[in-house]
């Protein structure tokens, strides 16, 4: 794994930065300088939505090199709230409970590591949305 190559991707991996075409509205992740859909060069950086829903998924049981420790793992196609489709691992979710329509949010995880002595690659994965409700006081005493 190349440390310089991993560093270059940080904004797109850590913060879901993409680009938006000001002409046709299409979103790209990672960013595109020229819109592949309409040819416009009028694109701006835009952070993608952090939440979305699962459209389809698979369970990887024969992983490529570097991902063996994590198997079996779920990879899902997620439709973010801004409409962007993104492919990512789904974590904190059992294979038995994953289903299309599941509400998901981005989480920050280890992606892979370059052996025991190499760099650790971090980035986004998605997990079921952590729901909370302050109406129900967790501890009403006092």
């Amino acid at each position: 794994m190349s440390a310089p190559a991993v560093r270059r991707e940080i904004p797109y991996r850590y913060r879901l930065m993409g680009t938006k075409c000001l002409n046709c509205g299409a979103l790209f992740h990672p960013p595109q300088r020229i819109c592949p859909k309409c040819g416009s060069k009028d694109l701006v950086e835009e952070e993608l939505a952090w939440r979305g829903r699962l459209v389809a998924y698979t369970v990887i049981r024969r992983p490529p090199k570097g991902y063996e420790d994590y198997k079996p793992y779920i990879v899902g196609l997620i439709e973010l709230k801004d409409g962007k489709l993104i492919l990512a691992q789904i974590v904190d979710c059992d294979i038995e409970e994953v289903r299309p329509g599941l509400k998901l949010e981005a989480t920050f995880r280890r992606i892979r590591e370059d052996g025991k002595s190499g760099i650790i690659e971090y980035g986004y994965k998605f997990r079921p949305v952590i729901e909370w409700n302050w109406q129900k006081k967790p501890n009403p005493e006092k």
Binding site: Y70, V91, T107, F108, R109, R110, I111, I120
Partner: peptide
């Protein structure tokens, strides 16, 4: 989880 550490 296996993909979590102190930093994540």
């Amino acid at each position: 989880a296996i993909d979590e550490d102190a930093t994540t």
